[in-house]
């Protein structure tokens, strides 16, 4: 059994530990899945920005959003709500700034998830 004792700034693993009921393999399953799916989606987001494809940006954000909530990533929740609602009409420069901020925050979150995986695997 593993308890929730990691100090993190970008992620909050309360839900991950809750659903896993302290089962280390299950916790690792969710953490590894985060580190597989989120970088892929960040690549897609970057590509959608380059193509100036607003609908694609919305779809990727929409798809990521539950996993980000589950990982307690609060810092970008305002951006996510705004993008989901106003993606069609907001100026493209504003959309780009928000998406870039999301990407920066999630890169930090990925690092924290990675460190947590290492901690769990070595303990």
């Amino acid at each position: 059994m593993t308890s929730h004792s990691h100090h993190t700034k970008y992620i909050n693993l309360e839900h991950v530990y809750g659903i896993s009921r302290g089962d280390k393999d299950k916790i690792l399953k969710y953490l590894n899945q985060f580190n597989e799916l989120i970088p892929e989606r960040l690549d897609l987001l970057n590509r959608a920005l380059l193509l100036k494809n607003r609908e694609q940006v919305r779809q990727i954000i929409h798809k990521m959003s539950p996993q980000l909530q589950f990982f307690g990533i609060q810092s970008i929740s305002h951006h996510i709500h705004k993008l989901e609602l106003d993606f069609k009409t907001m100026p493209f420069s504003e959309l780009t700034a928000m998406v870039n901020d999301i990407i920066l925050n999630l890169e930090q979150a990925i690092k924290e998830v990675h460190s947590t995986i290492i901690d769990l695997e070595t303990n």
Binding site: I19, K29, Y30, F34, L37, P66, Q67
Partner: peptide, 15 residues
């Protein structure tokens, strides 16, 4: 189509 949602729902149903 989201593997995360598949896993999460699977675990919730199981638990």
């Amino acid at each position: 189509d989201d593997p995360f949602i598949q896993e999460l729902l699977k675990d919730k149903l199981l638990n």
